[in-house]
Amino acid sequence: MGRKLEASLAILNGAIGDYLVRTGNGLATTMALVARSGDDVPLAFERAALTRALPEASPHVAIFVHGLMSTETIWTMSDGTDYGTLLARDLGVTPLYVRYNSGLAIADNGANLSRALDAFVAAYPVPIESLVTVGHSMGGLVIRSACHVARLERRAWLPLVKKAIYVGTPHLGAPLERVGRTVSRLLRTIDDPYARLVGEIADLRSDGLKDLGDADLRHEDRAANAARGSDRLRDPNHPVPLLPEIQHYLVAGTLARSAWLATLFGDSLVPVRSATAGLVDPASGALPPSHVKVLDGMSHIMLARDAEVYAAIRNWCR
């Protein structure tokens, strides 16, 4: 299938992917791992098949998880390389790319990813010594959700994860979604059929998109928000901590030159405070400064395919 079609399907899945799954629609994307960006054939989790698909399988594996309304081609740079192929060249890491329906709840994608990685690790041709996860935007939250589920279910892949890199991930939620949620709620309260219709249409957005508002990693978090009728615009206090046994690294982008604009709008979609999980404050001491990279003049999409970001990732993966 053509890349344009896949990109269109990724947007459709991000917008209404939960509806596609509920209605058994054939346009819903199924979660899969691919060995190369744009591969038509997903990896089968059988040792013989993986041995054929990954003839140079390394004990060091990097898993790339794209964000909302994207496919793994989001990582592709102008010269056709991506962070994965560059890590393979520079550090001998085997890169793998996750493809998934970003319209499903983050908790569902996290559970699916956890199951997939369990099957993948069991069938991998050589014993895995280290797993590095790299998530762009929502992908970082899916990874966190998967780690949370894997910890509860004692999945074999979790102890292999040594480092987790989050690129433009809204750890404290995305203010744009919170504003959209509030506006759609207001529209539905207006006693006017047209305003209510616009509110209903706005409310059609997927579970995955809605989860971005408060970065809900678990079903209980989104249920609690729904029960509370959450219409707060402030960052939520996240109930799922970063797992201490993993080394975490954060990349954030800022577009605006002015400091306060950069703080508010960050890379245009994710504010710096959300992308850095509120951990850049030295007083919190949660992450060493060397684990956080804030890049000026970097848009949300460019964070997934930029040489400077790659340099940071390579440095952290050494």
Partner: peptide, 18 residues
């Protein structure tokens, strides 16, 4: 890939748990 080889195949046909 077969369902057995890839536990994610067919996942999209299942409704989310919540």
């Amino acid at each position: 890939a077969s369902d057995e080889a890839n536990p994610m195949v067919g996942e999209a046909a299942q409704p989310p748990t919540a």
